[in-house]
Structures are given as C-alpha cells and as structure tokens.
Design a binder for these strands. Sequence first.
DNA 1: CCAAAAGTGTTGAAAATACACCCATGG
DNA 2: CCATGGGTGTATTTTCAACACTTTTGG
Lengths: 229, 229
Amino acid sequence: MSVTYRYPRPALAVDCVVFGLDEEDLKVLLIRRGVDPFAGRWALPGGFVRLEETLDEAARRELREEAGIEKVYLEQLYTFGAVDRDPRERVVSVTYYALVKLSEHRVRAATDAREAAWFAIDDLPKLAFDHETIVDKAITRLRGKVRYAPIGFELLPKKFTLTQLQRVYEKVLGYELDKRNFRKKVAATGLLVELDEVEQDVAHRAARLYTFDEKTYRKLEKEGFLFEI
Amino acid sequence: MSVTYRYPRPALAVDCVVFGLDEEDLKVLLIRRGVDPFAGRWALPGGFVRLEETLDEAARRELREEAGIEKVYLEQLYTFGAVDRDPRERVVSVTYYALVKLSEHRVRAATDAREAAWFAIDDLPKLAFDHETIVDKAITRLRGKVRYAPIGFELLPKKFTLTQLQRVYEKVLGYELDKRNFRKKVAATGLLVELDEVEQDVAHRAARLYTFDEKTYRKLEKEGFLFEI
DNA sequence: CCAAAAGTGTTGAAAATACACCCATGG
DNA sequence: CCATGGGTGTATTTTCAACACTTTTGG
C-alpha cells in the first residue's frame, strides 16, 4: 500500500471539450452515454486516469478511443472537484479543451459502438454530470484566449482564406468584425504567409490562400511577443 | 469498493503558492519539509485531498493548518500530473495561488512545529518536487491576471495610498510605471473611493487613503465590465 | 451580364505615452 | 529650512473604429 497516504482517494478522471467549426457554427463533440448514471444523456468524452500516464496523455487517449481524434490542439482547462458531482462516488475531473480541424478530421463516431455527434454551442442538449458547467468554462476560456494567442488557426485547414479566418473569430467571439480592420490587424502580426494559391471550385472570384507561420511565431513568443487580434 | 473504477488511483493533493508583498519585495510562503523525500528542503504548503471536501476547501484547510492563513484570495492555478513528480508513488497535484495582506496577517509560522518563511520571488531556494515549476506558473498567471482583474488590492490593507497601489503593480509586473499615468488609469476605473483620511506617522506629507469599491465592481463585472490597468 | 464574394484606404476619435515642477509635512 | 515623498496637466503619438466602392470570376 501507499507510503504517502493510506486513506480513501477520490477517483481521478479527465474530460474534454472538443471544439470544431463547420459551415454553420462553432460546435462541441458529445458522446451519448450507454450506462447509468445518466444513461442516454449526452456527455463529454472522458474517462479515468491510469497510473502510468500523465493527465495530458489520458486526455489524448480518451479522445482517440472515444472519438477517433488524434493530433489536436489540447490545453488544460480546470479541475472540478465538487463532492457530489458524480452520484456514484467522489470523482475529481481534470478537464481539457481541444480544437480540431473539422475539415480535415471528419471525426468518426466512436470506435466502439457509442454514438458521437456535434452540437452547436448555443443549441446543446441537457448534459450528464456537471458537464454544462465545464462547457461554459471552456467557451469562456476559448473566447479569452483566441484574442491573444494564435489558436484560431487550429480550427482551420493548413491553408485558409482570410474570410475563413475572420469567420473563426466571429463564431468564437459571437459577434461580427469589420473586414478591412480585421485584415489590417492580421497583416500587422506579420505571421501570415501569402501563398501562390487560390481557392478552388468556388462560384465567384477565388480568394488567396494563406498559412500561419508557426516557426516564426515560436521564436517571437520566446522573446515575449504577444499575438493579438 | 468503488462502482466507478476498480483500478489503482493516483493520490490527489493540493499545493498553494501564497504571495505576499512586504516593504521590499513580492514574496512566496514556503514550508520546510521535516520528512523524506526532500527532508529539509523548502516546499509549497499543501497536502492530500479528503473525500468529504472540495478542492478549494482542501486548499484553504492546508493554508490554515500549515500557515495559519485564513480568508485569502484563492484561485485554482493548474493541475500537475507528471508520472514521476513524487518519487514515492503517483501523486497528482491541483495547485492554487493565494494573495494575502501581509500587513494585516503577519502569518505565523505553521501551527505545528514546522518552519515557515517568506522568500522573495527572485531569490528562492531550491524547492522540493516540481514546486519550482508551480511557482513559475503562478508568477506568470499573477502577472497576466493583475492587468485585467482587480486582484492587486488583495495584497494591500483595506485602506491604502496610491503609491502603495502602484508599488503592488510594479513589484508584480517587474517594471516601473509612470506615476501620473498610473493615477489617471486607476481614477478612470471609477472604482477607488477617496477617503477622508491620510496616512499616519510618516516623516513627510501624508498621503490620502483610498479603498476599493468592491460592491460596485461586482455589479459592473456582471455587465461585462473589464477592470484594466 | 449578373451574382457573389474578394480586395483595398482614409479620416476622426480615443487612448496611451512622455515628461517636470510645486506642495505639504515632519524633523 | 530642508529632506521626503505627495500631488498634478499638457502635448504628442499611437491605436482603434467607422465606413463604401471597385475588381474578379464563374455561371
């Protein structure tokens, strides 16, 4: 038995709020629970932490197992520890939020038989446990962080148009932006690379494609540079 | 036995980075460990989470038990879960940071026999476990948050002078501010109440005392107001 | 040639910064 | 009367916000 602590311990879980942006909305990935408690309810993907894995690894493993998602932007959100948040017993949950490139992923519904689906953030069903609180916190965090860290790109394909990028900000922030001012601002960061390519198969003038200069950003970041939109 | 999870669980701890500001510097409260591992090393106050208490309650309990500190500003920081962060066994730590009014508290060294002391943040001893990483993260968070949330006040007595408040910002941020511009900004928030009192017992012109209008702030906060310095 | 979205500059207002001297008090 | 910190205003620069038309392309 443990040398550190001989008393009963809370169970330790991870839960993930996975964001994706499609043609309509900012969405969250939910899994339908098969078993009690809350059987039939939608819930965040998640599960228990194993002794031999870090918290980040546990979160990534659950995303892989429950939603077939790999290589996403993942960041720890908050740890929820209300005594009665799980009716069965004490469970503390370390939560994460993830940003996925829906266009590239087309996340397959869980590998096992469970049902998975995307829900617009302002049209969520009733969720299991305290998962609504968790989603709220994730949205708040995402809205705050998108302003001063270059994470909006994580919701887009590698090559994107400025209009697509603007849409990301508008959907995340929940209000509209001025096109010219937006373009001035992103240009001012100096971190967008204009490609020699344009959109394909659009029924109007094709927009130029851009990509985010991650390498340069990493360098500037170390020198205290702040990305701001 | 548990219905949720029959496998071995990590132990769950809380650790707190307690900040205080004295006449010289921004300081962190440390406790000297009496037992192995890291016996004799300085460490953050903390301990294991009990089944019947929330994480916040566990953090407050540890502050009370180990440092005699009560009623402080407390905020969750991050949860650390590296597999080998404790050499004994797997321990996941939910960390917090706290801001105390040193002038009022005069925190007594632990209630039990353990030694407690304040260290300037840029003159810390070698710490136990991964506690240096935790302190770094707490300083980064505090520097970020002090700019857009009214937490600087938590390091000062209820009544304070504008020069004291400026010192808080300078010590936390690590650089100097312009006196006139600083005063303009805090006045612009409309959240400082000028009192009919001045400093006592100073060997020069006594400065006016102010207090932070917390009630009004709470109201404005709900309407989306942002406190910015 | 029409529909649809791409792309592009200027102006005025507001906010941020830089900067230096006189005042009140206690010793 | 002097040492110490308290207190105050203005000018300049920078940043932000508002705003509308022309261009390109596919159908």
